[in-house]
């Protein structure tokens, strides 16, 4: 059970050189219920990555409060960054297992490598991989830690369409098997509708939450393009302010 409450009063980046003070987030209030799959949708540069970094505890320079509720222990966080962030001097497999505790089960890693079609490449150094393969490694690393909170920052960019669909299905499969809170950043509205329980629309900086919309398409017909498209059309009609964002 991991519910997150976000209440950021102000997050700004100090002036540097020619660039003045940049106010990234102002009065952002979100409550993210436990085990829900949420997609953050907003224009690029609006501060979504900043928000994920704050929730992951990587950025503590803000005013406000983030509470990650978790019984008994600190929540485990899996984070798929915008760039893969693999250690170039360690092999694919080592990159995954290094993020795991010492008593990890090799079988889970094997299974994930197999699903992502990386078994052949597991002993290769990341510099020899394509960007798409590196991304898949980063995704495996995040899945493998069995996270309570999974943060994903546009993880499917530069994956080819069939792989992206496969990884999307895998993600949903894993999430349904073992529910955890997912925050998924994207600016592809179709992708967001296909994945999320809830869409959260964010404004250009200073970032605020514009609207929250529940996606009520049943999970079993989420791969139906027409259902997604119909939902998207209706959404854009009902909420003209969203049209401007995208």
């Amino acid at each position: 059970m991991t519910a997150i409450t976000v209440d950021i009063i102000n997050k700004s980046y100090p002036a540097a050189g020619q660039a003045g003070l940049h106010r990234a987030i102002a009065n952002l209030k979100l409550s993210l219920p436990s085990n829900e799959f949420m997609c953050l949708v907003g224009p690029s540069g609006c501060g979504k990555t900043t928000l994920l970094n704050i929730i992951a505890g990587l950025d503590r320079d803000y005013s406000g409060e983030i509470t990650v509720e978790q019984q008994h222990k600190e929540p485990k966080i899996g984070y798929v960054f915008q760039n893969p962030r693999l250690l170039p001097w360690r092999t694919v497999r080592e990159n995954i297992t290094l993020a795991l505790p010492d008593d990890y089960d090799p079988k889970t890693v094997d299974a994930l490598l197999e699903t992502m079609q990386l078994t052949q490449a597991q002993h290769v150094y990341p510099e020899r991989l394509s960007l798409g393969m590196s991304r898949r490694v980063a995704i495996i690393r995040a899945f493998a830690v069995d996270p309570d909170v999974l943060l994903m920052d546009e993880p499917f960019v530069s994956l080819d369409a069939p792989t992206a669909r496969q990884v999307r299905e895998l993600l949903i499969g894993l999430w349904q098997q073992r529910p955890h809170t997912v925050l998924f950043v994207t600016h592809d509205l179709r992708e967001a509708i296909a994945l999320a329980d809830r869409l959260i629309f964010l404004s250009p900086p200073p970032m605020q939450a514009l609207s929250e919309i529940r996606v009520d398409i049943p999970r079993n017909i989420r791969d139906d393009e027409t259902a997604i498209e119909a939902f998207r059309q209706k959404l854009l009609q009902d909420h003209p302010e969203i049209r401007e964002l995208l």
């Binding site: 992951a56 505890g57 984070y79 960054f81």
Partner: peptide, 12 residues
């Protein structure tokens, strides 16, 4: 810095 953030996130 990116890699160091990654290690903090995965609690190395």
């Amino acid at each position: 810095k990116d890699l160091l953030e990654m290690t903090r996130c995965y609690r190395f």
